[in-house]
Simulated scan of single mutants.
Amino acid sequence: MYEKEQSLDGPPLIRDLLKERQAELTAAERKLSAVLLDDSLVAGLQSITRLAEAAEVSTPTIIRLARKLGFDGFPDLQDAIREEVAARMKRPLAKLDLAAPGGDHIVARFTEAVAANINRTLDRLDLATFDATAALLSDPSRRLHLLGGRITRSNAHYFFNHLQIIRSGVTLLDSSPSVWPQALLDMGPEAVLVVFDIRRYERELEKLAGLAVAAGAQVVLFTDAWGSPIERHAAHVFRAMVEVPSSWDSTLAVNLLVEALVAEVQTRAAASSAERISALEDMIGASKIFRS
């Protein structure tokens, strides 16, 4: 679903290593791996004894898994987990040091960071995932549902605005979880749920994604370098770089992927989208909403 990721310019993420090495693991090690992945690695911050009890495996199993992942032992693995969890859960105030004044103007520093984010996002982009997602979103038999979190709601709205011009059957879900059960009634095997979720990840979105998959829908996820827990439910995943010299993460690399998908979906649905856009222009003219 995505190419091997790195945490900024550091070593591969533990989450990715666990997924990549599944075929090499014993049954007990896979059981331990599932416990770590199911709790976004947080379980790995416990003592080795408590982790062994939680996963119902032996402490030697934990040590063997750590070594298979390339670490000298559990302490080294735990240090890596601690760093990864800290980076993923970094709060806005904790990022203020990154925004401290430097020799260059903030505009220059911000632009440089965004350009790097875009380049690194594209370097890691799996084109097969992109093409499969474009085919899914351009299929007229599919009903599309879009939703974002507190920060990424605007990304979902932007994607919705474009898709609903190109094709029919596109819905922007209400941000209130209390109305999601009604939306789930329309999510069957022909439905696609497009979710945006970057750190700090939202449990409500993960719950919705799980329920949608249980109903037969496919999930397309846009997330950050560390990967939202929603990945376990997603058929297609896009990881984008989000770090900038600010208290907040940037979603400009996410929107680049969104706009590229809009262009490809419109190309794939050229005939029907042209008719739809033409009809929309006629309607706008008749309503005289905009000045000519």
Results as ranks from 00 to 15, higher is better:
5 E>I: 05
13 L>C: 01
22 Q>H: 10
22 Q>M: 12
26 T>I: 07
28 A>R: 15
31 K>I: 02
33 S>E: 02
34 A>V: 03
35 V>S: 10
36 L>V: 00
41 L>Y: 03
42 V>H: 14
43 A>L: 10
43 A>M: 10
44 G>I: 00
45 L>V: 03
45 L>M: 07
47 S>K: 10
48 I>M: 07
49 T>A: 08
53 E>K: 10
53 E>Y: 11
54 A>K: 15
60 P>S: 14
62 I>M: 00
64 R>M: 08
64 R>E: 10
69 L>G: 04
71 F>A: 08
71 F>G: 05
71 F>R: 07
75 P>H: 05
79 D>E: 15
83 E>L: 13
87 A>D: 10
89 M>F: 11
90 K>C: 05
96 L>T: 06
97 D>A: 14
101 P>Q: 09
106 I>Y: 15
116 A>S: 13
118 I>A: 12
118 I>K: 14
121 T>M: 04
126 D>R: 10
129 T>H: 10
129 T>I: 11
135 A>I: 00
136 L>Y: 09
137 L>D: 02
140 P>W: 06
143 R>T: 04
146 L>E: 00
150 R>M: 08
152 T>H: 06
159 F>Y: 13
160 F>M: 08
162 H>W: 10
166 I>W: 05
173 L>F: 11
173 L>D: 08
174 D>Q: 11
176 S>F: 09
177 P>A: 02
182 Q>H: 02
184 L>S: 00
192 V>M: 05
193 L>V: 08
193 L>M: 14
195 V>W: 06
195 V>N: 09
197 D>R: 01
197 D>Q: 03
202 E>Q: 15
203 R>F: 07
205 L>M: 03
206 E>W: 03
209 A>K: 01
213 V>Q: 14
224 D>G: 01
224 D>N: 11
227 G>V: 01
227 G>P: 07
233 H>A: 12
235 A>N: 09
238 F>H: 06
239 R>F: 04
239 R>Y: 05
249 D>V: 07
249 D>Y: 13
250 S>L: 10
251 T>A: 12
252 L>F: 03
252 L>R: 02
256 L>R: 07
256 L>S: 00
257 L>R: 08
257 L>S: 06
264 E>C: 09
268 R>P: 04
269 A>M: 04
269 A>F: 09
270 A>L: 07
271 A>Y: 03
272 S>K: 01
276 R>L: 09
279 A>I: 07
279 A>C: 12
287 S>H: 15
